[in-house]
């Protein structure tokens, strides 16, 4: 909390935070890569392998979903799902793993989360770029509206980030935190809209399904990828508002955690 008399200016504080976050980023990289940088490579490859395995599987079965090639459909779904789930997964224990770093006054819990999530965003985004070679070899057509694909990906990352803040705080705040996080993550297999389109649901139930913000992002991505070949239902406004609320919730929880002191149970 603010205890200094030397009033730190905002820009100075921001500089410090950036310094800390970048140091944390490098630290995370070193921790991941061990000595030779294999770890980071692995981290990139991890979602990549997953997505490509899915692709190969569906490519071999050679089916189409509606009038959309199944590879593209599966890829879009899995990318969205992993885009938010990976962040949750990796951010969950970030505080517990880096507790000792909090001994440095400059290092705040939020910074730990920020560093981790930046790394995650990079790695999942790189795996998302798997689309490029797949488009290149012609398995998937070039997106009809590329800007929608990009926007929806950003929305996915934003959502994942917010959820990451929430889960990692819950993990630290609540005794049952880990279990709650696991439930949230398992839920996210289903509420991301990865496996189906809203159009396939009876109209009466679409509204309920569309309450999940990730469904909007997935639909948006499919609209961007396939254009008129699918009927997409989504509302950008709702998605942005929901993400905003989740971000707020996450930040409040993170503050709660950092106020309580993450070191309570260290000794």
């Amino acid at each position: 909390m603010p205890e200094t008399t030397q009033q730190t200016t905002f820009s100075r504080a921001f500089q410090i935070q950036m310094r800390v976050v970048s140091a944390l980023l490098r630290r995370e990289l070193i921790a991941l890569s061990g000595k030779k940088g294999i770890g980071f490579l692995l981290m990139l490859v991890e979602p990549l392998i997953f997505v490509s395995a899915i692709c190969v599987f569906f490519y071999l079965t050679r089916r189409t979903v509606g009038n959309v090639p199944v590879v593209a459909f599966a890829m879009s779904g899995y990318c969205v799902m992993w885009g938010c789930r990976f962040q949750m997964m990796k951010m969950m224990n970030v505080v517990a793993a880096n507790r000792s770093l909090l001994y440095h006054r400059y290092v705040k819990i939020f910074d730990l989360m920020l560093g981790r999530s930046i790394l995650q965003i990079c790695s999942t985004s790189i795996s998302f770029l798997m689309f490029a070679p797949i488009i290149y070899i012609g398995l998937v057509d070039f997106p009809v509206k590329p800007y929608l694909v990009v926007f929806s990906w950003l929305a996915v990352l934003w959502y994942g980030w917010s959820l990451g803040l929430i889960t990692s705080s819950i993990y630290g705040l609540v005794k049952m935190g880990e279990k709650i996080c696991i439930v949230i993550m398992v839920l996210h297999i289903w509420i991301t809209g990865a496996f189906m389109m809203v159009e396939w649901l009876p109209p009466d139930y679409r509204g309920y399904y569309l309450l999940f913000p990730m469904v909007h992002a997935t639909e948006m991505m499919r609209d961007g990828l396939f254009g008129n070949r699918v009927t997409a239902h989504y509302s950008v406004l709702y998605m942005v508002c929901a993400n905003m609320v989740l971000t707020y919730l996450g930040l409040v929880l993170v503050r709660k955690l950092s106020q309580r002191g993450a070191m309570d149970d260290s000794d």
Binding site: P2, T8, A13, T247
Partner: peptide
């Protein structure tokens, strides 16, 4: 959101 982020930044005092 903005306020919390700002506070978070300002916590990095010297």
């Amino acid at each position: 959101v903005v306020k919390i982020l700002l506070i978070g930044v300002l916590e990095h005092h010297e």
